[in-house]
Design a protein around this nucleic acid. Structure first.
Length: 210
DNA sequence: TCATTAACACGGG
DNA sequence: CCCGTGTTAATGA
């Protein structure tokens, strides 16, 4: 784990901090499609991503969901950052998008390191800033883009994260994450296929334009 | 006009 | 058969 830390966070944190992280954290390998955090769950550890990707979803009252953004390597969970003091509950749901390797840090150390290490403070603040911008970007898309543009955007994000233009998903799953109905997704996907932007298969599709 | 809902047929695993 | 997919008709915003 020490080597993993060095590789992914060595350029951010000084050796002393890396050593502390190493001493108090646990390394986890989490398979694709695993729910890591649920709404209402109390957060006791904060994740530092080494490899893989996690999708962050917001649940509404009816059990409907909406994709907020993806976390990739080097990212951390902003939700954890906001409720590191006390024992606040999570407002979001986190599910691994692909196989993911991450380090879990007990939230107790978050505060300690905030005062002790400038590099940690900078990292937390910058993460917070980045997540905020991602959120704004998502809000912009929901507010100003039509569903067909959002769909294409979503597919490109997926392709980017998987490092592959072949995307393994169903129309229904896309519909949930973009918060619309499957009929719409099916129709739009069909349209994209006619435009030669994608190729449709069962349980997967392939992106042709990047 | 366009999204949603329900309903149905098709077909692959 | 079960489920994902493609399509349509009715309804509503």
């Amino acid at each position: 784990m020490r080597q993993d830390l060095k590789t992914h966070y060595g350029h951010l944190f000084e050796n002393e901090l890396l050593e502390e992280i190493n001493n108090v954290s646990t390394l986890k390998n989490i398979p694709e499609g695993t729910q890591i955090i649920d709404v209402g769950q109390t957060l006791t550890k904060m994740p530092l991503l080494l490899e893989g990707a996690i999708k962050i979803l917001r649940d509404d009252d009816n059990g409907d969901e909406l994709l907020l953004y993806f976390l990739e390597k080097g990212d951390t969970c902003a939700m954890t950052l906001t409720c590191c003091t006390g024992s606040a509950k999570s407002e979001i749901k986190a599910i691994t998008e692909i196989d993911t390797k991450l380090i879990m840090v007990p939230v107790f150390y978050m505060e300690v390191w905030m005062g002790k290490y400038k590099s940690w403070r900078d990292f937390v603040l910058e993460s917070y800033q980045t997540r905020m911008l991602e959120l704004l970007d998502t809000i912009d898309k929901i507010a100003f883009l039509k569903m067909d543009e959002r769909l294409l955007n979503y597919l490109k994000d997926k392709a980017m994260i998987n490092g592959n233009t072949k995307i393994k998903t169903t129309h229904q799953e896309i519909a949930y994450e973009l918060h619309t109905s499957r009929v719409v997704i099916s129709r739009l996907l069909k349209k994209l296929e006619l435009q030669k932007a994608i190729v449709l298969h069962r349980n997967s599709l392939e992106l042709l334009t990047l």
